[in-house]
Structure formats: structure tokens, C-alpha cells
Design a protein around this nucleic acid. Sequence first.
DNA 1: CATTACCTGCAA
DNA 2: TTGCAGGTAATG
Length: 273
Amino acid sequence: MPELPEVETVRRSLEQELVGRRFVALRSLGWPKIVNTHSPELFAEAIAQRQIQQVLRRAKYLLIELDNHETLIVHLRMTGQMLVVAADQPADKHTHVVVELDNGRELRFHDPRKFGRWSLVDRSGVDELNQRLGPEPLGDDFTLADFSQRLQRKATKIKPTLLDQSVLAGVGNIYADEALWLAKIHPLRAAKSLNPAEVAALFEAIKTVLRNSIEHRGTTLVNYRDAYGASGENQYHLEAYGRTGEPCRRCGTPIERIVVGQRSTHLCPVCQV
DNA sequence: CATTACCTGCAA
DNA sequence: TTGCAGGTAATG
């Protein structure tokens, strides 16, 4: 369940391990569908001897910038892990990509559900990604006025609107519930029905829940780990998500679970109106 | 706009 | 054995 804070935590740990290093060679690609090249051989050829310049993040995507103006865009989807380990560490059956580094270590992609994707793109591929996605919620281009306008244009409920990556990029199911709880807004409210005070509260709540989670190095419910295999701590600070039946920490009412747009949604039926 | 496919592990 | 978890692309 990696969302923006988890991907940012992975980015920070990967940056430490990868910047300045070289991909010596592709060691294995057990599930070729993970990469966007037509064959494992083409992928191996494309990354061999490339030096890593930067490790960036856009929404839930990791961008590993190489020295030939190509970028390896990685999406962890639900269960992907980007791990950097000593080459003599045993791999397990969920390790689907192994790349040898120039310092005796390996970058390994571990993903039980094989949903994650690696795609090698040129500059236009990165531009395309940026155009498809809305503003970064923790960036300067995420403004109250713009957010308010985007909500006005949506015909749907506020919860699915927060999950729409073209409205704002990086919020997933956990932080959508957390932001709505903090802003005291019911997930079934029509996006365009929020008054200016509610929009402002939600705008601040989104930034607060994301920043707090980054401070706690992300939420580990099942699979999420950083590049060192370490779990996050934000699961101990959740107010709504996964707390069905437990008392709301504002008013004591049991947290309710409903389904909104096919997604499990957690809320306080008293505080959130 | 909603639903399904992609996958597997795990709980009921 | 069934169904759920969840991000995104593709499809209805």
C-alpha cells in the first residue's frame, strides 16, 4: 500500500544507496512483464553500465535518473519493494528483478503480487507522466485556489476525488481516509458541495497527514519496506484507516467502515459531516 | 461514470 | 473455498 509518504521514504533510502553507483549488469528478471522493454535482453542492454544520477519521486512513482538521459520509472503498486542488499544475501521466490551494482551490492525488486512495474523512458516519457498527474500535495504548485477549482469541477464524491491522481498526485486509500477524518468531512459528500472553510481544512489536512507520515517513515500494514527492509511507524498514528469499531479519538464514537467507489472507507459517523 | 484485469497471500 | 486487500490501465 505504498502511497506518497511510503514512496518518499523509499526514495530517501534508495538515494543513499544508489546515487553515484553504476548498474553493472542485470542478474535476473524472473517476471519479464515487470519491465516495459520487449525482452529481458533489451532491458539488460539498456541499463548495463549506466550510472545513477538522481533518485526522484513524483506522486507514487520513483524516478531513477541515469547518465544517458533515460529514467527508470518504478511504481510499487501494492506490494513492491526496492531493496539494496549485499550480493551474497539469499533471494526468495518473490524477488523478480536483480541488478548488480558496482559496490558488491544488488538492487532487488521484491513483489509477491507482481503488480509493480519498471519502465525505462526518455525525457518525453517523464514529461508525459508529469502531464498526466495533478500537483504534488507537498509542492509549491498545490495551492488552495487551484485545489478549490479542481473540486468544483468534479461530479463525484470527495473520497474518490482525493484518489484521482489527476486532481492531486500521491494520495491513496489510507491518507484519503486520514485527511477526511482530520478535516471532519464525510467521504460521501459531493466534492463540489464543500464550502470554502471545508476546502481549506481539507487542503491543510492533506498536507498534515502526508507530512506526519513521512516523519514516521510511512505506514507499514503488510508489505511496505524501505530500501533497507525497514518498516515504518505511521500505522501507530492512524486515526481512521483500519480502526473499524475502535473509538474515534475526538469523540469516542466507534469508527465505521463503509464502501465508497469500491474502496473500503473508514470514518467517524459523528465528527465527519 | 463504474467495473474489471492484473496477482498472490491470508483470513473467514 | 471464497473473498478481500489496493493502484492503475483498460474497458463498458
